[in-house]
């Protein structure tokens, strides 16, 4: 596996929250470099700041101090529109709780990614979107369930739908927050096999987990404890 340097980089990132008049520092001077094509697992105990770090990496939150570079670009000065644009076109999210819309079919849930994931450089037609969605669903082995509703799927299937939604727009970075947290071992293995396959195809992956078995699948394993990365 060869890595091309510098897709995302954290430089001395801190994140503090204020509660009841007191400042609580969740991240304390975190440095992290994730190369293109890398597969990094970040583990840590509950409350260690894993989700806060993922939110910053996904441009869902801003560091209190320090610098975050996405694709070599400092993100501090980006406004809501630019950050949303980077998220839509460049980042795919997979959450522990799936975040599927229950009233929509599997295909419609995947197609949702195209609503906000379009760029001026590559606007897609409806037929292109459908083809990409079906392709993503085939990739996760759910092409035959595209007309089903999430409520009729198992936990593992729902997570595979979420992965299809995350990858259908061909993002550069896949951020997964406890992707196997709600799955049994068999479904966890299936999901991790899929993530490994995607990474093997060149997708950069960062997984936040407290499961050591998941971390072992990654190329690199970093531990977050007390707001510091080791």
């Amino acid at each position: 596996m060869t890595s091309i340097p510098g897709l995302i980089e954290l430089r001395g990132v801190t994140r503090a929250f204020t509660a009841n008049g007191q400042s609580l520092e969740v991240l304390r001077g975190v440095d992290l470099l994730v190369d293109r094509g890398d597969f990094v697992a970040i583990t840590g105990s509950s409350g260690a700041g894993k989700s806060t770090m993922l939110n910053i990496l996904g441009l869902l939150d801003r560091p209190t101090s320090g610098e975050y570079l996405f694709d070599g670009r400092p993100t501090a000065a980006l406004g809501d529109r630019e950050r949303s644009g980077v998220r839509g076109a460049g980042v795919g999210f997979v959450f522990q709780s799936f975040h599927l819309l229950s009233a929509r079919t599997v295909r419609e849930n995947v197609l949702l990614a195209f609503v906000y994931g379009e760029t001026e450089e590559r606007p897609r037609s409806t037929s292109e979107r459908l083809a990409l969605a079906e392709d993503a669903l085939s990739r996760v082995g759910l092409a035959r369930r595209s007309a089903a509703h999430p409520g009729t799927l198992s936990g593992g299937e729902r997570q595979r739908v979420a992965i299809a939604r995350a990858i259908c727009t061909r993002p550069r970075l896949l951020l997964a927050d406890e992707p196997t947290g709600n799955l049994d071992r068999r479904n966890s293995d299936a999901v991790l096999d899929l993530v490994e396959e995607l990474n093997a195809d060149g997708l950069t992956v960062v997984v936040i987990t407290h499961d050591e078995a998941v971390a072992r699948r990654a190329h690199r394993h970093r531990v977050l404890e007390g707001g510091r990365l080791s």
Binding site: R81, S84, R87, H99, L112, V115, Y116, R165
Partner: peptide, 16 residues
Amino acid sequence: IGEIGLRRALGATRGQ
């Protein structure tokens, strides 16, 4: 709220 978070993660701006 969860749906709003999902849409934002998928790239929706506040305006959208």
